[in-house]
Amino acid sequence: MDEILEILEGLHPEVDFETCTSLIDDKIIDSFDIVTLISDISEEFDITIPVEEIIPENFNSAKSIYALVERLLEDE
């Protein structure tokens, strides 16, 4: 979880990622951010995030991102 928060803060230091749950809905992170995010996460956790998983529900909060990562690590 901490790694995820680190990556997120690297993108937008001004945002409070611990509490925010509407990152996509409020356009706090955009498509470009998502790509960078995914790129960093794939690198960090050595997983592949399939395109089908790029939906708002999975990226609206740091928590949901973490859940996604967990799920993908499990399936590995």
Partner: peptide, 18 residues
Amino acid sequence: KDYIFFPISVSKSMLNLS
């Protein structure tokens, strides 16, 4: 975005290139 941008930008080959 959904059918070109994301598939290309998060594809394995792209990430490897990156």
